[in-house]
Design a protein around this nucleic acid. Structure first.
Lengths: 336, 336
DNA sequence: GTCCATTTCCAAAACGTTTTGGCTTGATCC
DNA sequence: GGATCAAGCCAAAACGTTTTGGAAATGGAC
């Protein structure tokens, strides 16, 4: 509506003075400062965002790219995370834009568009792959970014991740300690870092316990993927007595498979993500979760510090994994 | 990186010509146009977003405000919807920013901030209440917007909604036709339009069938809310034999209550939203859903048409509700 | 050769802010 | 009384685009 020029004219002051008064510069007398502020509040003046952005050479925007597999963008609580992130970014005057990748375009193209048009000050990357071309691109361009999940990039970069290796190792060892000797893993697609590292954690536990690593089935990171993978495992001549699932969604699909197969209810299972729904499945799903609350806020904080120029090495958070014990991890103990 | 001036200089042309060549104006000769385009593609030139926005007086942004109840922002597939919306908006050069409402601030304040700073060209409102101050504000300001869900506003405004009344009426009548005579409703908070209208649909069916409307319990629109409401209903001296739940999340909570109570497994239940998880509950949850695919795209389309100035009356979509029959709606038929 | 129309290009203004580098004014100091 | 200084204000430039209103060159008609 109103702009600085009109406000200045109505006050009989220059644009400069009004601008500086509102920004609290010391070279404006307290009395004029107050006068300006009152007038601004009265007319509901707010600086034009585009103009400020142009002048300050900052987009005041952070983008997060969303993979566009229909139906499954990360875990359902992902939006909560984004929301928390956006909320914290807003306190620094930044807004979060969501940028789904249209079919036929790569996530890299998306990044390029945002970066080259100077549309964003930083980017948030999710679903990192072990070798992630987005990371390489942004590193080359020198654009601040934070990833949700690590990568195998040669150069260090800011990330926030859970220690999936330790988590899945511990979960598998727990099953071993409970007497299980045939412990299976339902793995996610191995080009994703998180899926790979969880699988490695399970494998390490198997080796450590002297157990076989043959009971591993890979599937899509969805209920359907978990369901199919579980069916595959259950076809094995010597069935597993416990299953460690890469995600809760996969675990929920696996639970369905267990219900459909005779004797399936005696098989223990554990997932990862702590989906709200997990408490309401039958049996209630035992699971794991990244420790720490309000992770969105942590992402925002990392982003802001990356924008401020802090070195990448200091912007890496590896959170421990904690167990959420419900019932599915201790069904009838194995007697074989 | 590079800007129009540099590009123009390197080509020995004026800024004007380069700009118009890239925009395909007819007063640039085909040969120079090609020359310019090649150079632009080569250097990866993209116009500075802020500058264009300032000059064109458009923010190229649409905001969606997110209520900040921790843990529950609409149904889990909400992000899919937003993603679809953002994707379609992007084809028109608009980006979608998510704007969670910080504690201590109202959704109205958020709207005001975005609108007065000319940060957005339009807004998307979710979780509409029957009387919604955001709607009133935006109408007064003349800012384009679309709501997810109707309101009781005096003036018409663009919306996209499911016909909850008809859906819940039909679901309740189906139970009646199946022989149920004690049909309960688990309702959401009644100041939300969707919750209110679903409750009304159930009530209408009760009247139509000559049944009592006493079996109604209200709760928070979460698993927990549904769980508690179900427990309340089951304490009634003459239990319901069927329950119509305002949302799937509430229905999933209610299912848990049914499992905990003796004889609960004979009670039929139906939800609304068609959450992916519903197919994996025990029993698989029968539910309802708004007809139409890619609703996000519909939202985007409505937004674009609202920005283009189409009258509100033509931007109202009321989608029918369709049933998704799984198992929970036909447990052992009532014999009382 | 003159005139007109068409093609092709461009200088300058505008969008609304922030920031630089002053300019006045009045007080203080010697 | 002149030099010095601080306080308070401001004109103008800059950010990078789009758009307006021509200007120069070309070609054709007479």
């Amino acid at each position: 509506m109103s702009n600085l020029k009109q406000l200045a004219q109505s006050l009989g002051l220059s644009i400069t003075t009004v601008s500086r008064a509102l920004d609290g510069y010391p070279d404006v007398s307290p009395v004029t400062r107050e006068r300006v502020r009152e007038a601004a509040a009265l007319t509901g003046y707010r600086p034009n965002a585009s103009a400020r952005r142009l002048r300050k050479q900052r987009a005041e925007l952070v983008a997060v790219t969303l993979p566009s597999d229909p139906g499954h963008i990360g875990p359902p609580h992902f939006l909560d995370m984004l929301s928390g992130c956006a909320e914290h970014l807003a306190t620094a005057g930044l807004n979060l834009v969501i940028a789904p990748v249209p079919r036929g375009e790569s996530e890299l193209d998306m990044c390029r568009r945002f970066v080259d048009g100077q549309r964003v000050d930083a980017m948030l990357l999710v679903r990192t792959k072990r070798r992630d071309e987005r990371v390489e691109f942004l590193q080359a361009r020198g654009i601040p970014f934070v990833t949700n999940g690590r990568t195998e990039s040669a150069l260090p970069h800011p990330y926030l991740d859970g220690d999936g290796f330790a988590g899945f190792q511990a979960a598998s060892l727990r099953f071993h300690a409970d007497g299980h000797r045939r412990i299976a893993h339902i793995a996610g697609p191995q080009d994703y870092y998180f899926a790979h590292v969880r699988c490695m954690g399970w494998q390490a536990a198997m080796e450590e316990s002297g157990l076989s690593s043959e009971l591993c089935a890979e599937g899509a990171p969805t209920e359907q993927g978990g369901y199919l993978a579980a069916l595959e495992l259950l076809r094995h001549p010597r069935r597993p007595t416990a299953i460690v699932c890469a995600t809760d969604e996969m675990a929920i699909g696996a639970l369905r498979a267990l219900r459909e197969i005779e004797g399936g209810e005696t098989i223990s299972i554990v997932g990862h993500d702590d989906l709200p729904t997990g408490a309401y499945t039958s049996p209630p799903l035992s699971t794991m979760r990244m420790a720490g609350e309000n992770l969105g806020r942590s992402f925002a904080s990392l982003l802001l510090r990356a924008i401020a120029g802090e070195p990448s090495e200091e912007l890496q958070e590896l959170h421990p994994i904690e167990f959420v014990d419900r019932e599915s991890h201790r069904r009838s103990p194995p007697n074989a």
